[in-house]
Nucleic acid binder design. Structure first.
Lengths: 396, 396
DNA sequence: CAGGCTTTGTCCTGTGTGTGGAGAAAGTTG
DNA sequence: CAACTTTCTCCACACACAGGACAAAGCCTG
C-alpha cells in the first residue's frame, strides 16, 4: 500500500508541522505567536500546507476578544508506524500525526531468528493493525533494533545479540515493503526519544535514559538531539566495569555491569538463591515455571521476599555505580530509568539514587532528578514514530 | 587600552572571518569556492569587511590560469589574549587573528591566592607582552579556570580547588580591565578547543580530551562543539570510582580516580616509595628537593627507574579503566591525553591503550586513536584565544 | 441593538537579500 | 598577437519577508 505523502517545502513549514504535532490543533493566530513570522508570511505557508493536504482546517477557535481564528490541525488521516524490536519480543504501534497511539500489538519473538522471520512478523502485525481499521497504509515508519546502527544508512552494525542482522539493510527493506519512508535506530535511543516526546523528559535538553532489559543500554540526548557516537555505539554501557576481577561476562571480560546486573543476571542470581534454599518464594516460582525471570524477582519483591529485595538493591547499587560515573562525566539534567524491568520500580530507584547522590559530584547531582520512565513498554514504539515524524516533517 | 573592534554584520561575514582565521590568507576566488555564495554577494560582503577593517587586502594570488585574484587576510593588527589559569601556574599568550602565538609567558602561582591576586598577575603579564611590542591592546580575551563555570555569564561555580573564586564575575571584571570582550571557560574545555583548532583533533567531530594535572578533567566535544553539561560541570571525571573501597579521597569518598592517579597522587606515591627505600633515584631527588612532583617521577622513569615506571604504568591502568568506560559510553572518534604530566608520555599512553582496547567495546575501539596532545602547555591558552575568536567572529 | 473596540485574515507595496548574466580587466598559452 | 581562462564589477531580476491598510468577524457597553 504505497502512499505519496507530501513533504514540507521549507523550514517554516517543517517548523509548523512539528508545532502542530506537539501541540495538537492550533489556531492560525496562536501559530503566529509561536513562530515569529509576519501574519502574511504565515498565511502563505499555512495555505500551501493546506494545499498539500498535510494539514486541514479544523473549525473555529474560541474568540480571544475579537474575531475568531480558524483552527488548523495535521491531517487526521496521517499514520505512523512504530516498531520496537526487543531481544525477546516485538512491539508495533500505530499513531496519528500527533503521535497518539491508535493501536498497539506485542508479540514474543527471539530476535536471533533473524531479519527475515522478524520482518515477516512485523509486517503481519502491521497488516493486522491495518485490518482493524486504525490505519490504511502508513506515511512513515520508525524501527528500533537492540544493537548499534549506522544511522544514516539504517543498517545494524556488528550487533552482539543479533549477529544475523549485521549489515542487513533494514531501512531499505522495510521501506520497500511498506512503501513509505523508514528510519532505523537503536532501541535505547528510541526509548529516549519517546520519553522526550511524551514522557518525563519533555522539558529537558540534556539527559540520559537508561534501559534495563536483557542487556543494559543508555540513550544520550544532547541539546534535544540524540547523540549516537562515531560508529553508532554510544550509550553501550553494559560492559563498563563495576568490579575489577568480578564476575565473568559473556563478552570475555570480568566485572561488567551486565554480568552483575541485568534481566539475565538477576534471573540467574534468583535461580541460584532458590536452589540454595535461601528464598521460599523464589523456590516456589522456580518449581512451577522451571526457570526464573526478572519479573519473578520483581513479583517476589513486591510480595515482600527479603532475598528478592536484596537482589534488587544490590543490582541498583551496581547500576548506581555506573550511573554515578556517567553523571559526573556528562552532567545531565535528568536521568530516566526504564525498560522491561521497571517492575523493579522504586526499590531499584531508591538504590540507584542513594549510590548516585553519594558518589557523584555535588554540583552535578544538585537538582538532578532520577526517575522512572513514564511510558512503559510503548516508549520505544512511540519514540520510533517520533523519529520518523521528525524525518517526514523536514524539508525533502 | 580600549579598542572598538568591529563585529561581523551577518553569518556570511562570520563564516568568512572564521575561514580566514583557520586557513590564513586567501584569495577572493578561493573564498568563493569555500562558501557557496554567488560571486556578486561574496564581493559585497568582502568589501564590507574591508570597510570595517577586520580584513585587509594582501597582494595578488598566483594565477590559476587566468587573471590573478586579490588576496584577503584578517587584519594583522588584531590581537587575542589567551589566559590559562592552572592550579599552580598561569599561562598567558598573545596571538594574531589567525591564532598564531606571538608571545607566551608562564608564571607559577597558586590559584588559591584568589581572583584579585591572580588578576593582578595576569594583567601584569599582559602588560609585559604589550610592552614587548607584540601587541597594543587586545580585541578579545579568553580565560580558562580550573573548575566548573557557568558559561553564559562567565562565572566560576562551586569550584572545589579554588573556593575563593565561587561566583566571582571573572568575565565582567576582566572585560572591564582589558576593555575588550572576554569569554570564560573551564581549562579542560579550552585545552580541547586548542587541540581541535591547532592540534591532533583537527578533523574529528566527537572526541574526548583528558587533562591530567593537579586533578583530572575531560573535555567533551560533540559535533565540533564543546559540551558543558547542565550546570557546567561535564567532564569532571576525577571522582569517578575506580576501586570500590579504595583509597580515601579528599572529596570524602573512596576509590576515586584522582586518589589513585593524578599529579598529586603520583607525587605522594613516589615520596612513599622513596622513603621506603624502594627507589634510589626517587630517594635522591627527594633528598635534594625536599618533596617530589609528577615531573620527578617522569624524569626518574626516563632515566630507567623501575619503581617510577611501575607507578606510571599502574596509574595508566587506573586512568585506562575510567577512559574505557567513557569510550563505551561516548563512542568518541579520538581520545587525546594531555596536561602537565604529558612528560609521562608513552609509558602512560601504552598503559592506557592496553586497558582501553581490552575493556571497551570492540565497535567503539575499532579505529579509535588514543594519542598525546600536540600543543603541550600552550594548549589551554591557544584554546582560550580560539574561544574568544569564535565569539568576536560571530554576529553582534 | 447600535456603536466602539479588538482580533483576525487578506491584500499590497516596499525593502533587502541573493542569483546569474554580460562584459571589462587581467593573465596564460601557443 | 590571437585565443582562451579566470577574476571582478555592474546590473537586472527573482524572491522572501515585513508591515501597513483595510475588510470581516466578534466582543462589550450603555
Amino acid at each position: 500500500m504505497r502512499r505519496m505523502t507530501a513533504r514540507p517545502e521549507n523550514t517554516h513549514q517543517a517548523r509548523l508541522l512539528r508545532l502542530l504535532r506537539d501541540n495538537g490543533s492550533n489556531s492560525r493566530a496562536q501559530l503566529g505567536d509561536l513562530v515569529d513570522l509576519s501574519r502574511s508570511k504565515l498565511a502563505v505557508e499555512v495555505d500551501r500546507l493546506l494545499e498539500t493536504g498535510l494539514v486541514v482546517a479544523d473549525g473555529l477557535a474560541p474568540s480571544r476578544g475579537g474575531r475568531r481564528s480558524h483552527n488548523i490541525r495535521l491531517s487526521p488521516t496521517l499514520r505512523f508506524l512504530g516498531v520496537d524490536i526487543g531481544a525477546t519480543s516485538v512491539d508495533v504501534a500505530v499513531t496519528n500525526a500527533e503521535l497518539e497511539v491508535l493501536g498497539h500489538l506485542n508479540h514474543p519473538m527471539d530476535v536471533r531468528e533473524g531479519p527475515v522471520a522478524v520482518f515477516e512478523q512485523v509486517l503481519s502485525m502491521a497488516a493486522k493493525l491495518n485490518a482493524s481499521g486504525v490505519a490504511e497504509g502508513f506515511d512513515g515508519a520508525g524501527i528500533g533494533v537492540p544493537g548499534p546502527v549506522r544511522f544514516p544508512e539504517g543498517v545494524p552494525v556488528a550487533p552482539p545479540i543479533m549477529p544475523g542482522w549485521d549489515g542487513f539493510p533494514v531501512r531499505e527493506a522495510l521501506s520497500q515493503e511498506l512503501g513509505c519512508p523508514v528510519m532505523v535506530d537503536n532501541d535505547v535511543n528510541l526509548m529516549a526519544m519517546g520519553e522526550q516526546h511524551a514522557g518525563v523528559a519533555r522539558p529537558v535538553g540534556d539527559f540520559l535514559c537508561v534501559k534495563i532489559g536483557t542487556g543494559i543500554g543508555c540513550g544520550i540526548v544532547v541539546g534535544g538531539e540524540v547523540y549516537r557516537g562515531t560508529t553508532g555505539s554510544a550509550g553501550d554501557i553494559g560492559h563498563i566495569q563495576v568490579e575489577p576481577g568480578g564476575r565473568a561476562c559473556a563478552c570475555g571480560n570480568r566485572g561488567c555491569l551486565e554480568a552483575h546486573f541485568s534481566g539475565a543476571a538477576l534471573a540467574g542470581d534468583a535461580e541460584q538463591a532458590a536452589r540454595e534454599g535461601r528464598s521460599v518464594q523464589l523456590a516456589a516460582r522456580l518449581e512451577t515455571a522451571g526457570r526464573l525471570t526478572a519479573e519473578d524477582v520483581s513479583a517476589a519483591a513486591a510480595a515482600g521476599d527479603a532475598v528478592a529485595l536484596e537482589l534488587i538493591r544490590e543490582g541498583g547499587k551496581r547500576l548506581g555505580q555506573v550511573i554515578a560515573g556517567l553523571v559526573s562525566f556528562f552532567n545531565p539534567g535528568l536521568v530516566v530509568i526504564g525498560g522491561g524491568v521497571t517492575g523493579l520500580g522504586h526499590t531499584l530507584l531508591a538504590s540507584v539514587r542513594t549510590q548516585v547522590y553519594r558518589q557523584s559530584l555535588p554540583l552535578a547531582t544538585r537538582n538532578l532528578p532520577i526517575v522512572l520512565g513514564e511510558l512503559g513498554p510503548a516508549a520505544g514504539a512511540i519514540g520510533a514514530t517520533r523519529l520518523i515524524s521528525d524525518h517526514v516533517f523536514s524539508p525533502a
